[in-house]
């Protein structure tokens, strides 16, 4: 089946493009949910993927805005006697075996989910407003790029753009030289995303409280990336 695809955990990944919304499969190939969000923790001052979140609460949180908030509240109200109902379910990143077109866990699905701890979420990082060095709003966070480093996936850069449609189609990440067709769609998406740029994580000050990223330098590099 999908055994021929590369394991993405050994190289850089874009969180929203390659990890969010993927199918979770257990060690026997059975399904147990989607990657509804990704848990981030600060380890040694750097954002690191520490878990995958799944379940309605995490999904509704990513809907964002009023709709997401109201639906999230209603979800909790369905059973107020249940503690931590509004906390999503969590799979520890240590239980992840490989990542290709799905997330394959190293364990059986029975009893693998735990309620999450209050941590940072990738789904809240993407969509944040981005301000330039002069305080001007220059766009939004479209995606976050992670690199493997001593066995962990660590945030290395942010993909920043104007938030136009089509960034999840992947054309803007492979760059202009790629053969990712059809050429007309690629041309349209690249034109829509001509301002999309990449910012190193150390140049970005992430303020979770007011959902804003403040840059210490102007982003210049296009996000073309030697993905395999």
């Amino acid at each position: 089946m999908s055994g021929d695809l590369d394991n993405r955990l050994s190289g850089p990944i874009d969180g929203a493009l390659h990890l969010l919304d993927r199918q979770l499969l257990d060690s026997e190939g059975r399904m147990l949910g989607k990657v509804d969000d990704v848990e981030l923790s600060e380890i040694d001052g750097r954002l690191t993927i520490t878990g995958l979140l799944t379940g309605p609460e995490a999904l509704l949180d990513r809907f964002g805005g009023r709709l997401g908030r109201i639906l999230g509240e209603r979800w909790g109200q369905l059973r107020v006697s249940e503690p931590d109902r509004t906390r999503p379910w969590r799979v520890d990143v240590a239980d992840v075996d490989r990542l290709d077109s799905a997330v394959h866990l190293a364990v059986r699905r029975e009893g693998v989910l735990r309620r999450d701890r209050e941590r940072l979420r990738l789904g809240r990082l993407t969509g944040m407003d981005v301000e330039g060095a002069d305080g001007q709003r220059i766009g939004r966070v479209l995606d976050a790029r992670f690199e493997p480093e001593s066995g962990r996936l660590v945030l290395c850069s942010l993909v920043v753009g104007h938030g136009r449609p089509g960034t999840l189609l992947g054309y803007d990440r492979h760059g202009r030289g790629s053969a990712h067709g059809p050429w007309l769609l690629r041309a349209i998406v690249l034109a829509l995303h001509r301002h999309t740029a990449i910012v190193a994580a150390e140049d970005a000050g992430i303020s979770w409280a007011d959902a804003t990223v403040r840059l210490r330098s102007e982003p210049t590099r296009p996000p073309g990336h030697p993905f395999r």
Partner: peptide, 13 residues
């Protein structure tokens, strides 16, 4: 090739 059905992809893309 990828082992993914239609609505997996709709949501991912």
């Amino acid at each position: 090739v990828s082992g993914r059905a239609t609505f997996d992809l709709v949501r991912e893309r």
